[in-house]
C-alpha cells in the first residue's frame, strides 16, 4: 500500500464546485422554459383579455374583420399529429424490430445509417418532395382509391334512434389537388419516422439477451421470442419513443405548411385542407399588421406550447396507470 501521506486529502471543495456547476446548468433549462412562457404570456395577455375563452373555442379566423378563433388550428395540429403517429409508429417499431432482432448483422449498420440520414434532410426539402412527388401520386391514385373503397361505406348507422357517424366520413368529399389533412399527416409521419425508429431501436437493444435466451430456451420461434421476451419487456420504452415522435409532430412546421392546404376549417374529411398552429404562425407572422393580429399569433404560440405540455402530461399519466397492471392480471 502507498503511504497515506503522499495521497491528496479528499477534496470537498472540488466536489462542491462540481455539484454547483451541474445544478446551475440544470437550472438554465428551467429558466429558459419560464422565460419562453413569460414572453408568450406577456404577448398574448391582451388577446385573452379581449376574447376570453372564445379565442380557444371560436372557429372563425378572419384577421380582416378582427375575429380570432384558434379552434381550427388546435384541431388541425392534433389531428395531423395523431394521424401521423398512427401511420409512423407501426412502421418505425417494425423497422426497429427488424434491425435489432431479424436483420442479418452485415445489413444492420448500413440500414441504421440510412435511417439516420433521413433525419438529416431539411424540412423544406421534404415539403418540396411532397409537393412534386407525393401530392400528385396521392391525389391521382391513393385518394380516389380510398374514396371509392372506404369512403363508399355507409356514412352513418342507426343505433337506438340515433344516427352514429362511421369512419367512412373520413374518406368522403372531394380530393382536389391533394393539399389536405391526410397529406400533412403523411409528410409528418415520414419526418418523425427516423426519431421513433432510432429511439425504439435503442430501447430494443437494451433488452437483456438473457430475456431472449429464456424464450428461445422454451422453444419459442423468433416471433414468439419478440412477443414474450422483447416487446413486453420494452413496451413502456416504446411508448416513450412514440411520445417523443408525437412531440416532434406537434411542432413540425415547414413541410406541413407546404402541403396541408392552410385553410382554417374543421371538416371530418381527411381529404379537405386544414391548418396547424405552427403553420399559421409561420405563414402569417410577417403580414400581421394590427396589434390584435400580432397578439393573436403569439397567443397561438402559447396554445401550441400548452397543447404539447398537455399531450406529454397525458402520456405520463397513461404510463403511470399502466405501471400497476403487471401482476394484477386475473
Amino acid at each position: 500500500m502507498s503511504d497515506p501521506k503522499q495521497m491528496r486529502p479528499a477534496s470537498r471543495a472540488r466536489d462542491a464546485v462540481f455539484q454547483w456547476f451541474c445544478f446551475l446548468m440544470a437550472c438554465g433549462v428551467l429558466v429558459l422554459i419560464v422565460l419562453v412562457g413569460y414572453v408568450l404570456w406577456g404577448g398574448s395577455a391582451d388577446v385573452f383579455r379581449k376574447f376570453g375563452w372564445k379565442f380557444l373555442t371560436g372557429s372563425d379566423w378572419d384577421p380582416n374583420t378582427g375575429s380570432f378563433g384558434a379552434l381550427p388550428f388546435i384541431f388541425g395540429t392534433l389531428v395531423s399529429s395523431l394521424l401521423a403517429l398512427a401511420i409512423a409508429a407501426p412502421l418505425a417499431i417494425s423497422t426497429a424490430i427488424y434491425l435489432t432482432e431479424l436483420a442479418p448483422h452485415r445489413l444492420r449498420q448500413p440500414l441504421v445509417f440510412m435511417i439516420e440520414m433521413l433525419s438529416a434532410i431539411p424540412s423544406v426539402i421534404y415539403g418540396l418532395w411532397a409537393i412534386f412527388i407525393m401530392l400528385p401520386w396521392l391525389s391521382q391514385s391513393v385518394f380516389p382509391l380510398l374514396r371509392h373503397s372506404l369512403g363508399a361505406l355507409p356514412k352513418s348507422i342507426p343505433l337506438f334512434h340515433h344516427e352514429i357517424p362511421t369512419p367512412a366520413l373520413l374518406f368522403s368529399g372531394p380530393t382536389g389537388a391533394g393539399y389536405s389533412m391526410l397529406s400533412g399527416a403523411i409528410i409528418i409521419a415520414v419526418m418523425i419516422l427516423p426519431i421513433i425508429t432510432s429511439v425504439s431501436r435503442e430501447i430494443l437493444r437494451s433488452v437483456p439477451d438473457l430475456q431472449r435466451e429464456a424464450a428461445y430456451g422454451l422453444g419459442a420461434t423468433r416471433w414468439e421470442v419478440t412477443r414474450i421476451a422483447v416487446l413486453s419487456y420494452a413496451k413502456k420504452g416504446l411508448f416513450g419513443a412514440m411520445i417523443l415522435g408525437l412531440g416532434r409532430a406537434l411542432g413540425e412546421t415547414m413541410a406541413v405548411t407546404m402541403v396541408i392546404g392552410n385553410t382554417p376549417r374543421i371538416s371530418p374529411s381527411l381529404f379537405s385542407p386544414g391548418y396547424t398552429l405552427a403553420s399559421v404562425i409561420a405563414n402569417e407572422f410577417a403580414e400581421a399588421t394590427s396589434d390584435d393580429y400580432l397578439h393573436a399569433l403569439v397567443a397561438i404560440g402559447l396554445v401550441l406550447m400548452a397543447v404539447t405540455v398537455v399531450v406529454n402530461l397525458c402520456a405520463q399519466l397513461i404510463l403511470k396507470l399502466s405501471g400497476t397492471e403487471v401482476g394484477a392480471v386475473r
Binding site: 437483456p208 438473457l210 435466451e213 419487456y233
Partner: peptide, 10 residues
C-alpha cells in the same frame, strides 16, 4: 441459465 431470468411483465 446462470442468472435467473423470469419474464418481468408476467
Amino acid at each position: 441459465f446462470q442468472k435467473s431470468n423470469p419474464f418481468p411483465t408476467m
